[in-house]
């Protein structure tokens, strides 16, 4: 099982996302990139970044790195502490409630993301399906 976060976890996540029927359906009109930012805390000593280039229900390209300079600037960023990410991928935090309660931050055009809220939810839900070692 891959460690979270890691290059191997990212690879498996993208594989799952690209085989998710729910995401292919809800994201079919989406064009834009997003970066998952996993901020360091007591559980994990470094920040990590997972960049995803998403187009019409598919992830065309991804990049995982612990160096922010390695990942392209993206239209959206979904940011949270490592321990909250762990809760999220255990389905203990709902991705939207997470933002509404301040556990996560979402940067980018709200107008656009609100219209694709189901796609955003399916995208985060996919993260709960990748087995990992905490």
């Amino acid at each position: 099982m891959p460690k979270f976060p890691s290059e191997e976890w990212a690879r498996q996540y993208v594989e799952k996302l690209n085989s998710s029927e729910a995401y292919r359906d809800s994201g079919k009109k989406w064009e834009g990139d997003i970066t998952f930012v996993i901020q360091k805390d007591e559980g994990n000593p470094t920040d990590s970044f997972l960049y995803l280039d998403l187009y019409h229900g598919e992830c065309r390209k991804y990049l995982y790195s612990a160096n922010p300079d390695d990942v392209p600037k993206s239209e959206f960023r979904y940011i949270g502490k490592y321990s909250n990410w762990i809760k999220l991928i255990h389905s203990e935090i709902d991705p939207i409630k997470g933002v509404l309660t301040g556990k996560f931050k979402l940067e980018g055009s709200m107008m656009k993301i609100m219209r694709f809220s189901k796609a955003a939810k399916d995208m985060v839900n996919t993260a709960t399906m990748v087995p990992f070692e905490g």
């Binding site: 029927e21 729910a22 359906d25 219209r115 809220s117």
Partner: peptide, 19 residues
């Protein structure tokens, strides 16, 4: 249908319905 799919009502519907 596509407007409905974009609605936030779809997020919390108890059954995850696709298009």
């Amino acid at each position: 249908v596509s407007l409905a799919m974009e609605s936030t009502g779809m997020l919390t519907n108890p059954y995850e319905a696709g298009t």
